[in-house]
């Protein structure tokens, strides 16, 4: 554990808490892509199956349980409790266009051809593109609530901080996981346009609106 990894995890945690708070306080999930949230639930469910096969640390297990449970709660809130506020008309990204190619790639490019390892790889690849339905939705509506922008900034920062963590681990521990690093870089790059808008607009007190 290094400082980048720790801040990255905390940023990830903050993102999820922000999203849940937004939904709970406003009793609404307007502006949030349910499809991205389904993908995140799938990401956690397929990645953390090792909860049952390996114990790494109390921190590790607690965080995994937190991510799995909160992602399920988020999906529940969106599709059941606050379903009336869900903006399905703008959430039209086709999930099969992500899940099918990512599944195929996980079969072809992995560290070890075993069920758990393929599911872990699937999860890493899927996470890297899971935000696309959300970004697609924002590009259709042309805007995002400020709290949603904070959520996305925290969520995007998490993987960017993991990249610094991997640089650190490469130099000081000789650790290098090509699959995680490439997918993490792809994931971070997808957020760059949003990061730019966040810094130039939201941090200056303006609402995030996309150029027409």
């Amino acid at each position: 554990m290094n400082i980048f990894r720790l801040i990255g995890d905390m940023s990830h945690l903050l993102a999820i808490v922000l999203l849940l708070l937004k939904m709970w306080k406003t009793r609404s999930c307007a502006g949030i892509s349910g499809k991205s949230q389904i993908l995140f639930a799938l990401v956690f469910a397929t990645r953390y199956l090792d909860l049952f096969t390996a114990f790494i640390s109390a921190y590790n297990s607690t965080m995994k349980l937190f991510f799995i449970s909160t992602s399920l709660v988020t999906v529940y809130l969106m599709y059941f409790k606050f379903r009336a506020t869900y903006d399905a008309n703008h959430d039209t990204f086709r999930l099969e266009f992500l899940v099918v190619p990512v599944g195929g790639l996980a079969f072809l490019v992995n560290h070890n051809f075993s069920p758990l390892e393929i599911l872990w790889t699937f999860s890493i690849y899927l996470e890297s593109v899971a935000i696309l339905p959300q970004l697609f939705m924002m590009s259709k509506t042309g805007e995002a609530e400020t709290i949603t922008s904070h959520y996305l900034f925290a969520l995007g920062s998490y993987r960017a901080l993991y990249i610094l963590n991997w640089v650190f681990r490469y130099y000081f521990e000789g650790f290098f996981d090509l699959i995680a690093v490439v997918a993490g870089c792809v994931q971070t790059i997808l957020y760059c346009d949003f990061f730019y808008l966040y810094i130039t607009k939201v941090l200056k007190g303006k609402k995030l609106s996309l150029p027409a």
């Binding site: 070890n112 963590n165 650790f175």
Partner: peptide, 10 residues
């Protein structure tokens, strides 16, 4: 094992 090197990460 070797393939689980990254699994301490979340």
């Amino acid at each position: 094992d070797e393939t689980s090197a990254g699994k301490d990460e979340l």
